[in-house]
Nucleic acid binder design. Structure first.
Lengths: 341, 341
DNA sequence: CTGTTAGCGCATTCAA
DNA sequence: TTGAATGCGCTAACAG
């Protein structure tokens, strides 16, 4: 039961002045007597007056709210990106409306629709893994909503984008494994629809080829998702092979951690017998035993940059005809789950 | 540069009818001819008409937006709680405005103020560790905003609250350590202002006393925060004691993980020489070596229940004079970092 | 069945 | 220096 909030009109009536006078006092207008201003300001404070942003937004056609949609907030990855977004836009008075699609295409559409009704000033979107059609994004964009896609690419969609160079991250990781003497390098992938999955796999493949190693289909395990359970299952399949791999490059740290637990159970030494490399460099990865070699991603910066570009759109008054496509560089962090050079 | 969105008036003009007729068509009112309705609906769809929620909110005095403030979104704990909140309120058409205070009291006040201007329909707040004065919460409450505090208690503040029974979680954990033969049980605490820190420490102390063990100040390490680094530092101090502890109960898993890495470095066996117990039961805890015994918290349910209670407030039209104070039970999950009974 | 009027809370003309 | 009028987009009450 929300009590009615005090309005400018309430104050005006109480003080026997016009609403516009109150408005002027509140805005420190020069066209008002000091005395009046004091009186009004004091009374407003006493009444706990709060300007109604809804009315203002209706007037200005600006809500100062940005819509953020991510596949899941629970993951370290996306919450860190949101962190970056928040830090960047907070300074400019923007608030965030955040929602997760739970990797559902339909939910993503619903969320974007709902946020567009609230007239958010712009969108920051990391598409769900099941988003293979981009009409909803195109529609929103064409309706005039500034928009940026981050982390996951939408191939063929012309909008601003910020992604991490998954290809080079994966390439570097696998290349490094080869240099340390690994010859039978397996790969456990992530969800098949994801651009990141595709790019990391390609990096893996190219690194093998470039080093004159054969691609062996039996060494590539296609994960359903990117959880530790997938890592457990994937590693178990690898153990069923006649000849074990001498290294496993995993789509992400969660998978690598799952794989690690399976390897340890069989009393196989990491990295002596099998090297293990993850992706994401989550905070805990350094505390595992052995500590996990992983590809660090500039996720926080990913958020900051995405926000920055969106703000640029917001502040520009010319129509966009060119789109920015930023690619951030990841970095291999070598720890003890892989051999040293 | 946001293009102007189509309004009801635009449609009305174009079709030479009145705005109210358009409104009726859009709402499937019975007082309108089938033919007209069709025509209007078709045109609206063609023009990509989106009802302006701002105007509606101004009219209804309801935004269908809830404000969520947590200390940090990056933590597994809070993002999972948000997950629960989202799942619960999403079904009722509520959107979430989420922000993190970064454990800053001032920021928390700023955020609540900003959200109140947007006229969120209610607040879900987990106070920062530096929030020791609750005037801002009281003010918001008195202004008529429904509000609920979750996870961290605000002692002496009369509002709805949902917390986890940290005391019993800690008590059970330490009691279990004693039963498995530990006699010198250390404790690394979390941030000192937190209600959770206080309750877990009390649980630790009482479990010792109840089992006839002495409280030894040297065994209690006061952590500044609750990161793995704190666990590392805390464990190092414990190693400086003349006599080592035979168990360490940590404020949370992050600290426990840090402590674990220090113990391993010194080639001391877990749990044979030192048992280790955490709190939170984060997803990775099961994958550590040894897997971490921890106190699982119903965080997702914490979010769901908080949301449910807030929705109840929202739907009730009588003024509150009693406040709900829900306490959820945590559960000890025994793994390999502690001895078996 | 349809159009007109008023008002949600506010800022911004324009008049006085 | 102040007040009255207008309109942001919409719905509801009222009048035809």
């Amino acid at each position: 039961m929300k009590k009615n909030q005090v309005t400018i009109t309430d104050i005006a009536k109480e003080l026997n002045v016009s609403p516009s006078t109150v408005s002027r006092a509140l805005h420190d207008s020069p066209f008002i007597s000091e005395e009046r201003k004091r009186e009004i300001l004091d009374f407003a404070k006493k009444m706990n007056y709060r300007p109604n942003q809804l009315a203002l937004s209706l007037l200005n056609k600006r809500t100062k709210i940005l819509g953020v949609i991510v596949p899941e907030i629970t993951s370290y990855y996306f919450s860190t990106a949101i962190n970056g977004i928040q830090d960047k836009v907070g300074d400019f008075g923007y608030k965030l409306m955040i929602s997760q699609s739970n990797e559902s295409f339909e939910e993503e559409i619903r969320l974007m629709e709902a946020m567009s009704l609230v007239r958010v000033d712009g969108f920051l979107i990391s598409p769900s893994s099941n988003t293979v059609d981009f009409d909803h994004i195109k529609t929103i964009k064409e309706s005039g909503f500034p928009l940026i896609i981050f982390d996951r690419d939408c191939h063929g969609l012309d909008v601003d984008k910020v992604v991490v160079d998954d290809y080079s991250g994966a390439f570097d990781a696998v290349n490094y494994l080869v240099k340390t003497g690994c010859k039978r390098i397996a790969h456990i992938t992530g969800s098949s629809n994801l651009s990141t999955t595709k790019h990391r796999r390609q990096g893996y493949l190219d690194a093998l080829l470039e080093n004159g190693l054969n691609i062996q289909d039996e060494l590539i395990i296609f994960g359903e998702d990117s959880t530790s359970e997938t890592g457990v299952d994937g590693m178990k399949s690898l153990f069923n092979l006649e000849k074990l791999p001498d290294a496993v490059f995993c789509y992400n740290d969660a998978i690598a951690i799952g794989a690690m637990s399976v390897i340890r159970e069989r009393d196989i030494l990491i990295p002596d017998q099998i090297s293990l490399v993850g992706f994401d460099d989550e905070p805990y990865s350094t505390y595992f035993k052995p500590s996990l070699t992983s590809v660090w991603q500039p996720v926080y910066d990913l958020g900051v940059l995405s926000a920055k570009i969106l703000l640029d759109q917001l502040n520009s008054d010319i129509d966009q005809n060119e789109y920015r496509h930023e690619i951030l560089k990841p970095e291999l962090v070598i720890r003890n789950s892989s051999k040293q050079l």
